Amino acid sequence: MALEQRTLICPVEVRSTGKGHTAAGYAALFGVEANIGGHFREIIAPGTFAEAVKGDVLALYDHDMGRVLGRSSAGTLRMTEDANGLAVEIDLPDTSDGRDLAVLMERGDISGMSFGFSVTKETWDETSSLPLRTIQAVDLIEVSAVARPAYPDTSIAMRSLEGVRQIAKSRNFNAAANRVGMKVSIDLRMRGLMSKA
């Protein structure tokens, strides 16, 4: 499965807990249509993260696996799926990245969150000129605090779209072949019945 990333510019807050700082916000919102590089549109359906939040997920600084801010299995990252989307809380570490991120978020320099994922369930609607992908379930790999929205995964997502199209073509071909096979079978049975009559 391909790893994809999506970024959401949505208010992210930093709270002082007395023991440090906690960053909180949404890494994804349900029902918000995104244009993915002009190739297709995408929405995330409610329920997409219901199982994914139970896994071991990392909190990262700008999708960098070398800059870990928290981890769900350690209790320093908490995620819930609510009516709006994927809500995230990260207890920022007392490290240079954690302290820098708190300052940058308080100043408004870091204003978004993102998530890295692999799609496990999706549907495609290709009835309009720009296909619509509805994500219904994912394997959630990481959530990140990010400075700028970007879609570096457009080519990966396009491979996903092309894969769906190839499967659809294959199904259409197989369905047509089955129809021809049934017609031949019926014709042969009819000829057999006629020859006996």
Rank of each mutant, 00 (worst) to 15 (best):
M1N: 05
A2S: 12
E4L: 15
E4Y: 10
R6P: 00
R6M: 13
P11A: 13
V12W: 04
V14M: 06
R15L: 12
T17P: 02
K19L: 12
K19Y: 09
H21L: 08
T22F: 07
Y26I: 00
L29F: 05
I36N: 07
G37K: 05
G37H: 11
F40H: 07
P46V: 03
F49M: 01
A50L: 10
V53D: 07
V57M: 08
L60N: 14
M65H: 11
R67W: 06
G70N: 05
S72C: 01
A74C: 11
L77K: 07
D82F: 12
D82M: 04
G85T: 03
L92Y: 04
D94C: 00
R99W: 03
D100E: 10
L104G: 06
E106A: 15
G108W: 06
G112N: 06
M113D: 04
F115Y: 15
F115S: 00
K121N: 14
L132F: 02
L132P: 01
T134M: 03
Q136C: 15
Q136R: 15
V138L: 06
L140P: 08
I141Y: 11
E142I: 00
V143W: 01
S144F: 00
T154R: 08
S155T: 08
I156R: 11
M158P: 05
G163Y: 08
V164S: 11
V164R: 12
V164M: 11
A168P: 05
A168G: 11
R171D: 15
R171N: 13
A177T: 14
A177D: 14
A177E: 14
N178T: 13
N178P: 02
V180Y: 07
G181W: 05
G181P: 02
D187Q: 06
R189L: 14
M194A: 05
K196G: 02
